[in-house]
């Protein structure tokens, strides 16, 4: 594998790991935001509906970044 390919491969795995971590941690990272902005629990798929329904500006920076990193915001934009 060429150095360029190795470097690219590393970037790919880092990006995917970051996305997986964000999807794993979104409940904790956004629980306060969800309670404050949506008045609901952060269980299952309703989490995404809640976070998509509010302005990013209203979200805490940590929650906003984690939600972006999950990829779910982008995915909805493509639907």
């Amino acid at each position: 594998m060429s150095p360029q390919c190795q470097q690219t491969r590393g970037m790919v795995y880092t990006s995917i790991s970051r996305r997986a971590a964000a999807q794993r941690n979104i409940g904790d990272a956004c629980s306060a935001d969800i309670a404050r902005l949506c008045g609901t629990s952060h269980a299952d798929a309703h989490l995404v509906e809640c976070l998509l329904s509010v302005s990013p500006a209203a979200m805490s920076p940590q929650c906003n970044q984690t939600f972006t990193d999950t990829g779910w915001r982008t995915e909805r934009a493509r639907q």
């Binding site: 690219t8 491969r9 970037m11 790919v12 990006s15 995917i16 990193d69 990829g71 982008t74």
Partner: peptide
């Protein structure tokens, strides 16, 4: 972060 997986796939 937009088109994140697309970037990955392209890479």
């Amino acid at each position: 972060k937009l088109h994140h997986i697309s970037v990955i796939a392209a890479a």
